[in-house]
Write a protein that binds this DNA or RNA. Sequence first.
DNA 1: AGAGGAAAAACGAACACTCGTTATGTTAAG
DNA 2: CTTAACATAACGAGTGTTCGTTTTTCCTCT
Lengths: 207, 207
Amino acid sequence: MPAEPKQQRALKTRDDILRGAALAFEDFGYKGASMREIAARSGVTLGAVYFHFAGKQELARAVILAQPDVMVPKLQSVGIQRLVDLTLVWAHEINANPVMRAAVRLAVEQQAHGIEEDTSFQEWEVLFRKWLEEARDEGELAPGASTGAVAEFMVGAMTGMQHHARLTGKINTLGDRVVRMWQLLLPGLTTPDVAARLDLDPRRGAA
Amino acid sequence: MPAEPKQQRALKTRDDILRGAALAFEDFGYKGASMREIAARSGVTLGAVYFHFAGKQELARAVILAQPDVMVPKLQSVGIQRLVDLTLVWAHEINANPVMRAAVRLAVEQQAHGIEEDTSFQEWEVLFRKWLEEARDEGELAPGASTGAVAEFMVGAMTGMQHHARLTGKINTLGDRVVRMWQLLLPGLTTPDVAARLDLDPRRGAA
DNA sequence: AGAGGAAAAACGAACACTCGTTATGTTAAG
DNA sequence: CTTAACATAACGAGTGTTCGTTTTTCCTCT
């Protein structure tokens, strides 16, 4: 951030740029989205973009960091139901918020462009394992389930599902796909009675 | 292919270029890999690259088409075991063959660059469902399982796992991850006795 | 209240560079 | 000597970024 904004219109255009950048990054990826395309989609000129952001890298990082941490709160459920709700909220947010979609794509493409900021992968994995262990403490998990391995697999599966849904153009089916994932996973993850009383309605994602 | 090769050394350099292109595409993606980088990694100059390939698009398509269809044969197993073996061979091939890794990345990135050639997604999904239905015909599947939904999920999960393993730098753990996927999926997919007699050794991937 | 001015914000042209591609030159094989 | 196989150099378009300029906003002083 080369300048702390001191006028309200600055914040407005800064937001416009962030949204425009998200749209461009989502469509073309980091390398494919040009600063001119970003400026065009933001409704501003190149100079304005460089007034608010130091360069392309920081713009991408700003998009990644703009994904709200709103995901975690708002959920008063506990145990596995909380884990389910987390994925449903994630699915809902993905196809409601373009900034979130761009952030996921950028985080996945990252590696070479010095963004680092693992932000999504290890963070999600840690979060998943945390709730899994809480579920195990409440006796909801099947005896053989390893929380680390399950969390690792779920993070990969979720990003893969998002990828698959985006490429096939059916991003709006993400919620249903998440539900089907749970229907497949639950028998091996928990006891039948726990699985039976879980609420798998994708509409739980809209908090 | 702008020229059918008429000398043997031409075939050698053509292979060098294909391998160099695969390495570059794997590291930087389609847009990020420059023709100069490809030429450098191939040990030749730009002119040689353009003598053997018409352009970047065709070079990428050649890399994709170079992935051997060796996956399907060599497996004399049937039913779900065959499906398991298919994923294990895939995992083994991924971290043994750089051309395969590049092909997967290119196929996943495709979309905008006019490569099309879906080659991986719908094809894999069709293949998976085919073996799933064969497994159901042999009575190995649990009554509630939908072959279409399972195949769709597995394709997404597999590409997601590959992505996750590559980003975290642990591509060699792919086989173990595939095994853990099956351990999670099988309880909800088949009957306990069928699951018990399956062989999940990742070394089955090395045909 | 209203003119003056400084700083903030946005503009737009230009720079240095890399890109994919092509044209031309040079070497090796038959 | 002819042509295939490669090397070298250049072109035009597009890239990220910089910079001088203009416009807008806000604060001050009479």
